[in-house]
């Protein structure tokens, strides 16, 4: 029997990833189908493997999800209930900036390769007449490194996925201030099935939607810090893609 590959967007802190290993075990038992969980440290490596059709099932941010549906024939299956992806723009406590509108051209931005967060961060800078032509962006592999750029004085502002910002250690987070936090509510991660596993989608969806009703399933969800799954209807997927198209410059 063929072993399929499950992967997760690299924007999660390690403590979240342990839950995905538990989910992978649950998924294999539920579907009686072997899955291997492939974890990536950075978006580039994961995208290379997506292009090589090495990933069959993926929990992706909505920016990547739109690409996977349009370009790689993936089908959106489900999304986490009561969860949305929000972006935080933070500065070091010692910063002279008190609001986004205080920021000036050529300010230094530390950002990861997380496309949703980078896009939303740049959108929130627009009100200060800042865009990619007049800021200096430094790319970091992780949100911890974004924080280090700020605390070492190597960047003026940093973009964070809100959940990842909150997962930073108290010591690091206490040395930063939030300038602005997005309140969008309609951008979220999505579980998507590639062409090789779409025959599994009906049963997978049934199992996912029932997870919260079983003790075992609820334990798995708890380990992923989720409360349940919601079905992604075709129109939900189209809306997600339209939204990303609207936000992309």
């Amino acid at each position: 029997m063929e072993t399929y590959t499950l992967s997760v967007s690299p924007d999660f802190a390690p403590e979240y990833l342990s839950g995905w290993f538990i989910f992978n075990t649950w998924l294999q038992k539920s579907l009686e189908t072997p899955f291997h969980l492939e974890i990536y440290d950075d978006f580039e490596a994961q995208r290379r493997d997506i292009q090589l059709d090495k990933i069959d099932l993926i929990y992706a941010n909505s920016y990547d999800a739109a690409m996977l549906v349009r370009e790689k024939g993936f089908q959106a299956v489900a999304r986490p209930a009561h969860v949305s992806d929000e972006t935080v723009i933070a500065v070091a406590n010692s910063s002279n900036f008190d609001s986004v509108d205080d920021l000036v051209p050529w300010c230094r931005v530390a950002s990861t390769h997380d496309p949703d967060v980078h896009m939303m961060g740049m959108i929130m800078l627009e009100s200060a007449d800042l865009d990619s032509s007049n800021v200096v962006v430094t790319s970091a592999q992780t949100y911890v490194l974004v924080a280090k750029y700020l605390l070492n004085g190597d960047a003026d502002v940093g973009f964070f996925l809100k959940d990842s910002f909150q997962d930073l250690s108290d010591l690091i987070r206490s040395q930063m201030r939030v300038l602005v936090e997005s309140q969008i509510g309609v951008i979220h991660h999505t579980l998507l099935a590639g062409p090789k596993v779409q025959h599994l989608v009906p049963e997978m969806l049934d199992r996912l939607l029932l997870m919260q009703n079983t003790t075992k399933g609820k334990d798995v969800l708890d380990s992923m810090q989720m409360t349940g799954w919601l079905k992604m209807e075709g129109e939900d997927t189209d809306f997600m893609i339209d939204l990303i198209d609207t936000l992309m410059e």
Binding site: D101, I123, M124, E126, S127, A128, D129, F239, D242, L243, D245, T246, L247
Partner: peptide, 12 residues
């Protein structure tokens, strides 16, 4: 149609 509105800069 889908429409998204965001904060404009004061100069604009």
């Amino acid at each position: 149609y889908t429409s998204v509105r965001r904060k404009p800069s004061r100069s604009k």
